[in-house]
Amino acid sequence: MRLINAFKKLSINKWRYIFWIIGLIMFVAPFALLTRLIYFTIGNIYPPDLHGICFRMPFEWIFSGRIFYLFQYPIMFGTVILALIIAFVLGPIFCGWLCPVGAVSEALSRIIPFPYRLRIKDTSITRSLRYGFLAGWIVISLLIGLGYIGISSICCRYCASSVLQSLVDAISSSTVLYWHSGSIIVLIFWLIIGGVFTVGGRAWCIMFCPLGAMSGLFHSLGAKLGFYRTIRRNNVKCNNCDICMKVCPMWAIDSNKSIDRTLCINCKECVKRCPNNAFTMVWREIN
């Protein structure tokens, strides 16, 4: 019975979960079909994997002033720019629908039943954590660019993509599963604390992802300019049942039921699960 109920819940927003699988197949080796296709097209023989398209390093290169790296790795740069343009126009749908890192931790939170999960109800505090991290990221990048040796990149040392790819490699092939302190810390925060012990399983995405934080800013900017596709709440239909707050994996809906655009990833969980259909996707409409 519980299994049937679980499947019923999944079927409510089934396209999103199908896109999670597509995202895994597109980016994660041994499939990495999108990376494979790009590499094949440009004649690159590097084995494609989740590292092939890093969503973090281009930000570090930009903020550290090492722009020349962007020309050495144009695929990474192009992918990140594309994700930001999409966030500006359509919302951060890469985060909500395709990103394998977020998909795995959110899926884990749905699979493992755990009654006591953490969540920050005040979206302004969640937002402050997210952008405190981004500010720290920018400062670290600047210091690296200035050659300060007391600080090092947090890009590769704490990389959830790398941990995910290593785990998949260890399952699918006989490679050595090497853990350094950074990857152990990531495993704890991304999958264990973030995935199991928090509501929605996306604490890592909320607090430690520069692409997520930048996409949130672009989404918010797109919303302000009225050039966006996003979720809107109908005050009349809402009966304050709080289901939207419980199902939002990004803690983007506060107790007033207002949606924080810098956190929302247009995942449509609130749209699909609201019993009164109070949430709808809208085009070019400023609240």
Binding site: Y131, G132, F133, A135, I151, I154, H180, G182
Partner: peptide, 19 residues
């Protein structure tokens, strides 16, 4: 919240430099 996240990130960079 902002300062906690900011300082934690900076500390992560310093710890990364150490290890």
């Amino acid at each position: 919240g902002f300062m906690v996240a900011f300082l934690l990130t900076i500390y992560s960079g310093a710890y990364s430099a150490e290890i």
